[in-house]
Design a protein around this nucleic acid. Structure first.
Lengths: 369, 369
DNA sequence: CTGAAAGCGCTTACAG
DNA sequence: CTGAAAGCGCTTACAG
């Protein structure tokens, strides 16, 4: 029936396998609805000036067949891919995964799809090439990467006029950056503990040369100096005694070492929540009460902060704000010429005080035998 | 210069913006290397019979320009997209994220890219349409979805001849499934505790109507019956006393309720590690020693199992094996006609015994005042 | 090796 | 509204 009345058509091309109910092209689909390809295309793209009846007919047919226009053909025609590539350092830490989930959600709200890839060690080149071949509109990096490597990738993206942005890691040239103000975060923790009367501080896993650790240390020192105290005199680190691992066990080991110290600090600030919780266990195992005898503060404000008894004081990363800022910056870049100077946007963290921190013990001087 | 000697060409089309060093098509690129488009294409696709010198020339130019062929044009030409869509229930639980990471890694090893989407509540339709428009070769679901919703999505995928597979959730018709044998897992936990001499068991958060919970209960009952014990006589649940939340706090609350019971069980099996750890805290807060007075076992064997003191006995999900099985099943389906009967592949969990479980207290009878 | 041509599934003027 | 045509960036025979 559909082949009748079409004399100009040659020997009839390939007979469409009618039993295959799967419709894969606007041509097939137009035939199915009984409209011209052009018309179907216009309905699909919401052009004005179409009869309501026609629009409904197409919509009904979409429902029936589940037809989706081929994205590859669509974007070939020059349409934006409306896709953002997301490079993750890994999916091993809760804060990173939270940011990923929030970022994808936010991008979707702004009508963008996302391509997520965990950068395999040394394999960032291929991931970026994959993103470029997929003609992503922009690329986001989340995490702390090898500086040299991510710098190169960022430069490559610049070469291809592809907007990009780094979340978390400061110090990468030629790119916009959104990062937590870790200096501020640590100052807030210290201010909180100082206000509680503490004067001696144990540092848990806050040693090392990465920017993120150095910033924490800067924050600690800045707040102490602001109060007229000398950091060297009132802080102590025992990280050299153990093999670093930044996890529970490491925190516990550090705490047990501190317990054996003559002049044991009364307040402890940790690199992250895991170390802090490990330390709490260590102190409690040694018979110390928290926060009666010692106060402990974490960093990141993960869900696990609610797990120990008492619950852990920590610093919230403000993930939503971070992600929203990142998306705003990124989408503003798409389709616009590169700005002369990349932007660095700092996010202010928020101290969440819980019961793992309390007033400094009155007997603190007595303890220093 | 490039416009000379071409008389048939009309008024000279758009002058290529030569300063834009960005090469976006094989045409541009071929011009850059000084070869025919056809030749470039053959090099790119690794065809045989090319001069080594030519291949090297192209490779050098790729290095210089960072040119990547447009994936959208490539796949339009009929090439497989070699892409698998991954639908995540959420990114909120560590085991799910682990599976995601392992799945993407495994797919990459098998030369497939992945499209990851978290299904927004009620928005699974759009995600699947997105996947279909991207012409993915297959779709994987990870997590426990609303049965009705995922069943519909699976059916749609079938309609479009798109292979699919569900990880974790049993009972979805018309699809291959890879899931942990939770019955087996719970039997193993019970066997372990029974071997340690326990005869009374507290169930923590193991109530509800989802398949995953019912399977756990079946496992518990099966093992007890296998030992000639009556489940109703030796298990106890206090879930009705609290508002369910499946987290630390819920576990703690349950434990504290058990502490007040006259005939307190000596061994506790939890829905997951979070509840188990919460319960440990509850028991310890009440002055009970683990495992001296009570034994506690978790489920999932997450990293947090290492956090409490003592560390938590748990059941490992065997993520690698799960993911490898899933990928094997999936890739075998691509390009092949649908099998008459969908496959359900059960993964055997592995009990990881740690120090939160120990011999039943000798004084157990004495406790029953 | 080169070059011209067809075609993948779309969109977008253009003339009816 | 329809239909024919051009073109997006590729690959793949086909003839040189």
């Amino acid at each position: 029936m559909p082949n009748s009345g079409k004399p100009p058509k040659p020997p009839a091309p390939k007979p469409p396998t009618r039993n295959a109910r799967v419709i894969r092209s606007t041509a097939d689909f137009a035939r199915y609805v009984g409209l011209a390809r052009t018309t179907v295309s216009r309905v699909l793209n919401g052009h004005p000036g179409l009869k309501t009846q026609t629009v409904e007919r197409v919509q009904k047919a979409i429902e029936e067949t589940g037809f989706t226009p081929n994205a590859y053909a669509l974007h070939l025609k020059g349409k934006r891919t409306a896709t953002v590539g997301i490079c993750m350092e890994n999916l091993l830490t809760a804060p990173a995964v939270l940011k990923l989930a929030a970022l994808q959600r936010r991008l979707r709200e702004r009508s963008h799809a996302s391509l997520i890839e965990v950068l395999p060690p040394g394999g960032s080149r291929e991931v970026i090439r994959h993103f470029l071949s997929m003609r992503v509109d922009a690329v986001v990096f989340i995490g702390h990467f090898i500086e040299e490597e991510v710098s190169q990738r960022v430069h490559e993206l610049g070469t291809h006029d592809t907007p990009h942005l780094v979340i978390d890691q400061l110090g990468i040239p030629e790119t916009d950056t959104v990062a937590l103000d870790r200096v501020r975060g640590m100052r807030d923790v210290m201010a909180h503990l100082l206000d509680l009367g503490h004067t001696s501080f144990g540092l848990l896993a806050i040693n090392g040369l990465t920017r993120s650790v150095r910033d924490r240390l800067s924050g600690i020192e800045a707040e102490l100096q602001a109060r007229g105290m000398k950091p060297a005199d009132c802080t102590q680190s025992l990280d050299h005694l153990h093999v670093r691992d930044n996890d529970f066990k490491y925190g516990r080991a550090l705490a047990l070492s501190f317990v054996e110290e003559k002049h044991r600090p009364t307040a402890y600030v940790a690199l992250n929540d895991e170390v802090a919780i490990g330390a709490m266990h260590g102190f409690q195992a040694a018979g110390l009460r928290i926060p009666h005898d010692v106060s402990v503060a974490g960093f990141n404000n993960q869900e696990i902060c609610l797990m120990p008894t008492p619950m852990l004081t920590s610093v919230d990363q403000q993930v939503e704000q971070t992600v929203n800022t990142a998306v705003d910056l990124l989408l503003a870049q798409i389709g616009h010429p590169r700005k002369p100077h990349p932007l660095v946007h700092m996010i202010s963290p928020e101290l969440v005080a819980r019961d793992s921190t309390g007033p400094a013990p009155k007997s603190v001087l007595g303890l220093k035998r």
